[in-house]
Design a protein around this nucleic acid. Structure first.
Lengths: 230, 230
DNA sequence: GTCTATAACCGGATAGAC
DNA sequence: GTCTATCCGGTTATAGAC
């Protein structure tokens, strides 16, 4: 989802104005928080009229959408090295997850707002929405890469669904992170360490023939989840 | 948390007025939705001044708090029969979960708002908050009852944590339900059926000595989760 | 302590002229 | 594409009555 604008913005000047508004908004959000930053203040500091800000961004929340994309790109870059060097699945997952929470840490103070919008099924910003599809797919692709590039033995049927499952798992971690007020988000880090450990164990067990019914049941569930688009 | 009022309301007449405002508000929310119902309209229809509504309810959101308690009580009552008759753990869980989604179904149209506020870590309405502790404990107790009254063999160490884990699971289902726009919430029902099946299998496997390390790892995680109050 | 009435504030969102 | 003026509704303030 690279497109958060209301109308068609094709001219060079339009792009420029749009970019200025966005940068100003994100700066101010980081500086003083989301609620405390009014659209009027953003417009004023960006040197445009209030109505013009709304010309480019349908609502205040739409300004957030750019944030998702931004942190995702940062996360991608941060993961590149470990995904290239490390072959052990558990280590790869741990690396990806640690980088994730490091990447988003600076934005923790307005995490609440993020999730408030994310939880609203009517919001186009929610991670399950159609409008979020492209970003979601990119994010799932990252987990696919983490699985593919590893030397882990994963049953074929599970392997296909694993990236999606890991993405869901990572959304859960983010939910925890949002509610985590411990210093330096120490608790989230411990939870990541422990859950990745558990995931690695479960994936290891999944090949066991004894687990076949459970694995099949789980895959049926996943099919159901994906089909519903949620 | 039964108390959502701003000041002390001790007189009979005060209680009366409070109740009228609340009932009017919930009626109107159901009838035309949350966003569409203005505080001015609630006050007018309840026959009180706008200021008076704010005298009893600190904010519009506080009117929602009563809703949680209300549906929880309904759910409790709806579960009583099955919990009394049925002894099989899987059947008990399935019963409890099905009743849950039946109970909240009428409110699906403003579920988005509910969870928008509920997801905000700063909101006293969020299910992990200190202010929600009493309701949360009651809800966990229901799952404890479902486990205790069953004839399932559950390892002792897991048995203590299971109610909390099930409560977490049930929150996840509610999150899915919110995003579920399928007719009659058919998808949520299928997901409940499948997940309860999986849960029952996992609980069954948990006694297997082969699972000991995994079980221990999971219990350490749960301890971490609870300690952090989230 | 309970309640009314009225006015005002504030900030997100929109309309419509240029 | 950009502006100004305006709407709208949550929330607050005030002043006073039972």
């Amino acid at each position: 989802m690279t497109n958060t604008r209301s109308g068609k913005t094709s001219t060079r000047r339009g792009m420029q104005t749009r970019a200025v508004i966005l940068k100003t908004a994100l700066d101010m959000f980081l500086d003083r928080g989301y609620e405390e930053t009014t659209m009027r203040a953003i417009a004023e500091r960006a040197g445009v009229a209030l109505g013009n800000a709304y010309y480019y961004f349908r609502s205040k929340e739409h300004l957030i959408q750019a944030f998702y994309l931004y942190t995702h790109q940062e996360h991608l870059a941060a993961c590149a090295e470990i995904l290239e060097k490390e072959r052990d699945l558990k280590a790869r997952l741990l690396g990806v997850m640690r980088k994730k929470i490091e990447t988003i840490e600076p934005y923790h103070r307005f995490a609440g707002v993020l999730f408030r919008t994310a939880a609203d099924p009517k919001s186009p910003l929610n991670p399950f929405s159609e409008e979020s599809e492209p970003t979601r797919q990119e994010s799932i692709a990252l987990f696919a890469q983490a699985v593919e590039g590893s030397n882990a033995r994963v049953p074929r049927d599970l392997k296909g669904e694993l990236p999606y499952l890991l993405w869901l798992y990572h959304m859960g971690i983010i939910l925890f992170w949002i509610h985590d007020s411990s210093p330096g988000r120490a608790r989230t880090r411990r939870v990541v360490d422990r859950t990745v450990d558990i995931l690695a164990r479960v994936i290891g067990l999944a090949s066991n023939p004894m687990m076949l019914p459970l694995r099949k049941a789980t895959l049926r569930l996943v099919a159901e989840l994906r089909e519903s688009g949620a």
